[in-house]
């Protein structure tokens, strides 16, 4: 049968396996079993959620606000003042093309977001730990014909005692606002006005409306001022028609 030496080898081997498996189990169970770090991570996720919500809401607000103000959050001095709550930038002014372009529009929104996200994302409600931004918020907006996409980089450090979690997530929001298309149509309107300021090119408007489904209101404010109001009644995120409007001075 078995010799004594053989039995010893099997016993030793069994012990080694037991030790290895047991060790592994110990270390693995040790890694999963730290209740303190798990709680910090979970709460830090809420910090990210706060930033994300703030970003989404203010981006939407900025897009709508700039839309009714001719593309600007802060309208230029040379704008058509409507009343205390509204002024609309000129897209066409006595022969000049002043219409905001995509890049300027995007920069206007991004600058506003960089300012406002920091105000909006109020970390004071998190009492259990300390939250510090590790850099200023940086956002950018890309305008496409059929949507807008914005990204926010706002790194924060969450800490409690010696425990630290760094979040360097990139927040991304996409809205189905057809801003690029609206700006394109507006550019066409201004270009037609520059070439022929005494005419409203109804054929052009009609072709664009048929393709896009937008509504275009031509609002005669007074003898020298017209407002073009381009709106999209297709369903969007919040159920409020997106409006891009710009003023025209003849």
């Amino acid at each position: 049968m078995f010799k004594r030496g053989q039995v010893t080898i099997y016993v030793v081997l069994g012990l080694v396996i037991l030790v290895v498996v047991g060790g592994l189990f110990y270390f693995l169970s040790r890694g999963n079993g730290s209740n303190t770090i798990s709680t910090l991570g979970s709460q830090a996720e809420n910090v990210k959620l706060l930033i994300q919500n703030c970003f989404e809401e203010n981006l939407l607000q900025a897009l709508y606000l700039a839309g009714v103000q001719g593309g600007y959050i802060e309208v230029p001095d040379n704008s058509l003042a409507i009343n205390e709550e509204l002024a609309v930038a000129y897209g066409y002014f006595e022969g000049q093309d002043l219409l905001i372009n995509k890049e300027e529009f995007a920069l206007e929104i991004a600058n506003y977001l960089n300012f406002v996200v920091e105000k909006c994302a109020d970390f004071s409600s998190f009492n259990e730990f300390t939250i510090e931004k590790t850099s200023d918020p940086r956002s950018r907006l890309e305008i496409f014909d059929d949507r807008v996409e914005s990204r926010l980089f706002y790194p924060v450090k969450v800490s409690r005692g010696s425990e630290v979690v760094n979040f360097e997530d990139l927040y991304v929001v996409d809205y189905n606002i057809r801003l690029g298309k609206m700006l394109g149509i507006s550019k066409g309107i201004v270009e037609a006005e520059r070439q022929n300021p005494d005419f409203i090119d109804v054929i052009y408007l009609k072709e664009e409306v048929e393709e896009s489904g937008f509504e275009i209101d031509i609002v005669e404010v007074d003898v020298n001022n017209i407002l073009y109001v381009i709106s999209d009644d297709r369903p969007n995120t919040i159920g409020v028609e997106y409006v891009f409007q710009f003023a025209n001075k003849f």
């Binding site: 058509l80 031509i218 001022n225």
Partner: peptide, 8 residues
């Protein structure tokens, strides 16, 4: 497409 007159 609508053209309208609206006071400022």
């Amino acid at each position: 497409i609508i053209k309208k007159q609206v006071e400022r």
